[in-house]
């Protein structure tokens, strides 16, 4: 008799909602409302259609919404694997007839559904003040960021105990190092930063994907590929590594 992992996904979803989902929703609401509502009010006074893609305010909307997605993924990945290891919860979980690789792969997917659901709700609320905002495009972008950033976060959660901190460091560090060491003069440092997460590609992708629903395929492939590779590496580490210290 093997464990009913599929059925357990409902409990995982509940855990996501209680431990991460509420926090993500509150941060998204507060951030979105406090920044966008006054901005819209100010811009409406100047122009009758201030919020169409390409308008001056559109860039700010993109910045804020894409930042909400990144922070949401950061919160979602916080402790996805490391929490069970740090707190010793793995002991009872994996004495049951279940495969730990499948258990955490399922958690990653369940959390993705949770994040996308919250992003859909938040963007639906955003649409009430920004009618031109497309929910479908935004959810697509959130899915892309979840895989790209979440895949790295998943790997870090398997490999370290300080996953959200190291994910934030990797994410921001990649951006900064690419900004410093890019171009032909960077030499070997430029080559090294090439293997860092392709965070720099997100800006263009956010602009086109949230605005038009399409994005340069090479950028999307880089982001998805990097995230999936890290996710798979995390699963391999789970399979062959030790859960206990």
């Amino acid at each position: 008799m093997t464990g009913r992992l599929g059925k357990y996904s409902l409990w995982q979803f509940r855990d996501f909602f209680m431990q991460h989902g509420i926090g993500i929703a509150i941060i998204g609401l507060l951030w979105g409302y406090t920044l966008l509502a006054p901005l819209r009010a100010a811009m409406s006074a100047q122009s009758p259609t201030p919020l169409a893609p390409g308008s001056p305010i559109w860039g700010i909307v993109l910045q804020i919404t894409s930042a909400v997605v990144s922070v949401s993924v950061l919160i979602a990945m916080n402790g996805i694997v490391s929490s069970d290891r740090k707190n010793g919860y793995y002991r009872f979980l994996f004495s049951k007839p279940i495969n730990r690789v499948l258990y955490y792969a399922q958690a990653f997917l369940v959390y993705m559904v949770g994040v996308l659901l919250i992003m859909a709700i938040l963007s639906a609320l955003l649409r009430t003040i920004l009618p031109s905002f497309n929910i479908g495009y935004f959810v697509m972008y959130a899915a892309l960021v979840y895989i790209a950033m979440g895949g790295i976060g998943f790997f870090l959660s398997v490999a370290t105990r300080y996953d959200w901190l190291s994910l934030a460091a990797v994410w921001l560090g990649s951006r900064m190092l690419r900004a410093i060491y890019s171009g032909p003069r960077a030499g070997w440092k430029g080559k090294v930063v090439e293997i860092l997460p392709p965070v720099h590609r997100l800006d263009d992708v956010a602009n086109s994907l949230i605005g038009t629903g399409s994005a340069p395929s090479s950028d999307v492939a880089w982001l998805l590929g990097y995230g999936l590779l890290c996710f798979i590496l995390g699963l391999v580490l789970l399979r062959y590594g030790s859960l206990a210290d």
């Binding site: 093997t2 010793g88 007839p97 730990r100």
Partner: peptide, 19 residues
């Protein structure tokens, strides 16, 4: 064996999510 059959296990430190 554990993944296929399971084992009844009580650990020295009972670690269950406090919530």
């Amino acid at each position: 064996y554990v993944e296929q059959n399971g084992i009844g296990y009580l650990s020295e430190l009972v670690s269950i999510n406090p919530k």
